[in-house]
Design a protein around this nucleic acid. Structure first.
Lengths: 364, 364
DNA sequence: TTGTAGGCGTTATCAT
DNA sequence: ATGATAACGCCTACAA
């Protein structure tokens, strides 16, 4: 059934040397037209596809970039924000790689077994895009010794690699500012994600910045904490409701998932959104549009993150010694109903892309 | 910066031959403990990662499976049903492959350029999982000559390959049956996807089957047609509203997206769901839960499709001459509010998995 | 324009 | 337990 022919057979069948076959398949020059015809014919008849491993070995280049992301586990389905986020990143990476003629190898690395997997992948690719929480710091460093790495993670992360992230701080500042300036809300609070999450921390910082800018009192801590899941948002909301005897005027959530969870609790408590309490999220997941009320939130350029990361990686491959880069992609505001606006969705840039050339790489 | 050391350097550094290094890295036997230590130490110090291309060449096996899916284009984002579907398939494929120690190479193949891409990918992998509409029939056949292929597509598709799909017919029959039996609706209509879509056709067939079973009149055609998008659902709904002066009692949509689009039109027309008109979808995308009313729909085991396809491919790789298989994965009912139910979501199996051994492969 | 032959980094088969 | 040494399939100087 399967042929698995080699360049030798194609060469023999078309009466030329393997060198000529190779030339026909890649160079586009260095042979006569009739020769080309014969080679192509033979290749076609045999159904020959050049062996990627052999080619990669000879070219010292696999033509593959790897994408590592955290294994979200069995429970991670379409409802999961991180999952959605990563899917988009994957799409973006695929697009950018294909555009450059490369393919993308994906792998979900989890915990300890992740290291082995990562090593295996590292051997198969020319470079690696690694998303937050898919690899420990030491593992990153170790693998970084043998393969170029671009990290997709929050700004605060290690500066030892090329890095791309979205503007969490600016995005949070923008929604919060919207609540303050457009709706004139002055009592605002932030519901954070898991402790230690750089994303959450930066969003909280952006929130605080907006308050500061408006001359409002700045809280030392978030009002409550969830874990970026719907269930976590529910819990956080209930905790607040049970603990405090009066609510702020607006709640800025660390992400959409938690806002969705909170919304169901608030509905239960018959608290009107947005008339009694304004709500905002972060991420702009698909469901945000379909909620009632629809959720005002901050859109992250998820796919662009993947694209940018791969492009950066390919640049690095081309030029190993250039200055290391950090790219911060702009977020945008998706204004819907939950903040109090009534117009149809509009969106506005929250910041513009920034590139920081950090330090130059040591050469060698 | 980057080491890119080889097995030779590891061998020299640890004072053994490359053969021994290789043995230590894979066999787990054929060397003494002290030797093992030295090799591991040297490898660690050098940060050596075995070159996948060389390994693949020597082993005649890349340890990579490819996943081809259609390029949905720029406009395809998280809102898009097909996109979500494919994301889940990708996740499933990744999971199954990783479990088997393989990696997954992904590529979105679009139109003509797709063929070249597909060939390139085919050369890099041990086998290919190909989703519906990512490759033309002839291209499939051509590439199938050099690499084993498993197809994820509707049942009707070509039988020349191993195939896995979900039970569209059974799923549609089940929701329709629910409308008939539980809610006693007898005037039902189907809103189809694009003409020629096997998925849509099978769902319509399932719809008809349910009517037939209940002894109700069976329509020759769907009431209207969309293109599986939200906008398409809107258009279809408007067309029906403008054309007919009376609506059926329930509308079975070919997928969730279209149901969502229709829902917004129906809201505009102040038509009460489900009291005046019951609505159901197909796919169970994330938003279905959050709609108002929440959407009763049929869940496809998207991730499982990816898992099953990869497993099937690995089986095929292991045993090239066994009988070709077709696997139909069961769908399940997600009962929510739009059908008229008031209970919380419940779900029920709609069918059980079926395996058809078709004909045996010709040996050679 | 075409062919010869060495090399790419591993694995695996023989010896020893 | 270890070491030579062929493959593996392709690319690419270098020659002709």
């Amino acid at each position: 059934m399967l042929e698995k022919s080699t360049i030798y057979e194609v060469a023999r069948r078309s009466g030329v040397s393997t060198a000529t076959v190779s030339r026909v398949m890649r160079s586009g020059s260095g042979f006569s037209e009739p020769t080309r015809q014969r080679v192509l014919k033979a290749a076609g008849e045999l159904g020959w596809v050049p062996n990627g491993s052999a080619r990669g070995l000879a070219e010292r280049r696999a033509g593959i970039v790897g994408l590592l992301f955290p294994d979200l586990g069995k429970e991670a389905d379409a409802e999961n924000e991180s999952a959605l986020f990563l899917d988009q990143v994957i799409r973006g990476a695929e697009r950018a790689a294909t555009l450059a003629g490369d393919a993308v190898l994906i792998a979900a690395t989890s915990g300890a077994a992740g290291r082995e997997l990562a090593r295996s992948v590292a051997g198969k690719v020319d470079g690696l895009v690694v998303t937050a929480r898919s690899l420990s710091g030491p593992d990153l460093t170790a693998i970084g010794r043998s393969v170029p790495i671009v990290v997709i993670a929050s700004h605060t992360a290690r500066r030892k690699f090329d890095l791309v992230c979205s503007d969490n701080h600016g995005g949070a500042q923008a929604v919060t500012g919207h609540l303050i300036e457009v709706h004139d809300h002055r009592e605002l609070a932030f519901i954070a994600g898991p402790a230690g999450s750089p994303d959450s921390d930066q969003r909280f910082a952006g929130f605080c910045q907006a308050l500061r800018t408006a001359g409002l009192p700045v809280p030392a801590d978030p009002l409550a904490r969830g874990d970026f899941t719907e269930a976590g948002g529910e819990r956080a909301m209930r905790a607040v409701l049970n603990r405090d005897n009066r609510l702020p005027r607006g709640l800025v959530f660390g992400n959409d998932e938690m806002a969705i969870g909170a919304l169901s609790v608030l509905r239960e408590y018959r608290i009107r959104i947005p008339s009694e309490l304004a709500i905002t999220g972060f991420d702009d997941i698909a469901s945000a549009r379909h909620l009632v009320p629809s959720l005002t939130t901050v859109r992250q350029p998820m796919r662009e993150l993947g694209e940018a990361a791969v492009r950066m990686l390919l640049d690095r491959l081309r030029d190993p010694d250039s200055a290391r880069q950090t790219l911060v992609l702009p977020t945008s505001l998706s204004v819907r109903r939950s903040c109090g606006c009534t117009a149809r969705t509009s969106s506005a840039r929250t910041s513009s892309a920034r590139i920081n050339k950090t330090h130059s790489r040591r050469t060698s």
